[in-house]
Amino acid sequence: MKLSIFFVVLFHSLVWAITSQSKEVKLVTGLDYAPYASPDSLNGGVITEIVSLVFSEIGYQSTLGFYPWNRALKRVDRLKSDATFPYAHTKERAEKFYFSHPVHKIKLSIFQKRGQARPFAKPEDLIGLINCEPLGYKTEIELVDLIETRQIERFSAESVDGCLERLASGPADFVVMSPSVAWAAADRLWKDEAQNVLSESEIPLNISTEHLIISKKHPHGLGMIEAFNAKFLQLLDSGAIKEVWIKHLGKDSTPLM
């Protein structure tokens, strides 16, 4: 009798372990995207907490890693991790990855060195300048032709901080970034002097959406994206996502989706 009870307990323990393991999701995101995704932000940032909440609500136990953007993308493509976020949609990425419902909508501004800023109203105003783009960032469609025809020169840096430092020191003339991300990095780099270093364009380059993405090679990728989307929209309607947003960014902030 005792032996039978032992095997019953062992069986259920094994079933629980297998089920738990099958419901783990390995998430990765970037290192320098505060307040949205950063190891230095509360709970990894507002988008990180929202993504983790959605997966928790659909029964997944999540683990989280922070990597340079390009490396995070490669980990998901090679199935070393299950999903990464927040990434903008591109034609090239869409060939390899499933994209979720937008988890964030951002304004992208032109940042230049204060005192040397050229007036900006349209992409052609940037002709003749040098752009720094963090590795793993999407090249905005408005700039692609100008870069390909070498009317704008472009080079890459490992991180947001790297591009802003090169903007301040001279090799770069402008960067394209979310104001929240750029100013958070500038405050970290230059503290009270940040406003004296950077100049933000009054007119944005564009408004872009960002997404959770999963490799199309993932055996459960499409199902995970569909489950994520359904629960995300449910939590958005219920106000749960707004609560997370307010916790991170204040009572006057609203989810931009």
Rank of each mutant, 00 (worst) to 15 (best):
I241E: 05
D125K: 02
E210M: 07
R118D: 00
N43S: 07
Y60D: 00
S201H: 14
D187T: 03
A117D: 05
S13M: 09
R154P: 09
S4F: 14
S41K: 10
S22D: 11
I241P: 01
Y60K: 10
D187A: 05
L198C: 12
F228N: 05
S169Q: 11
Y98P: 03
S100F: 09
A157N: 13
D125M: 11
S109N: 15
P134W: 07
L129A: 05
S201Q: 13
L212Q: 08
E202A: 14
L256M: 10
S41F: 10
L143H: 06
E158I: 06
L126P: 13
L64H: 08
Y87E: 00
H211W: 05
D82G: 01
A168H: 12
R150M: 06
P171V: 11
T29D: 02
C163F: 11
P68M: 12
R118H: 08
A185D: 04
Q195P: 10
K2H: 10
S22L: 09
I106C: 02
R150S: 13
V144E: 08
F228K: 13
N196I: 09
F6Q: 03
S4C: 09
E243Q: 12
L53K: 15
I214Q: 01
S215H: 06
A121E: 05
A194G: 10
T209K: 09
E148S: 11
H104M: 15
E24Q: 15
V181R: 09
A185G: 04
T19K: 12
E133G: 13
L212F: 01
D187M: 00
K138L: 07
E57S: 10
A83K: 03
Y60V: 08
H248F: 00
W190L: 07
T139K: 08
E57Q: 10
K113M: 01
S41E: 15
L212S: 07
K216W: 06
R75C: 04
E57W: 03
E153C: 01
L129W: 09
D187I: 00
E92Q: 10
K23W: 10
A157S: 15
L164M: 07
P171S: 04
P35V: 04
I110V: 15
L236V: 00
E200R: 15
V28S: 06
S22N: 13
V28D: 02
L79W: 06
K231N: 14
I214A: 01
K242A: 08
L53A: 08
G250T: 04
M224F: 08
Y98N: 07
P86N: 04
P255Y: 09
F174S: 05
Y98W: 15
V175S: 06
D145C: 01
K80M: 10
L205F: 12
V15L: 08
S238T: 12
G115V: 06
R118M: 01
E133A: 13
A94P: 03
D237F: 10
L146V: 10
L108W: 08
A230L: 15
R188C: 03
F99P: 14
T48C: 12
K80W: 08
D145K: 01
K113F: 04
G65H: 04
A230W: 11
L64R: 12
P86L: 00
F228I: 05
R93Y: 11
L27F: 01
D82E: 05
V103L: 14
L249N: 03
T48Q: 07
S38G: 06
D237Y: 11
V244G: 00
K107Y: 14
E193A: 14
F7G: 00
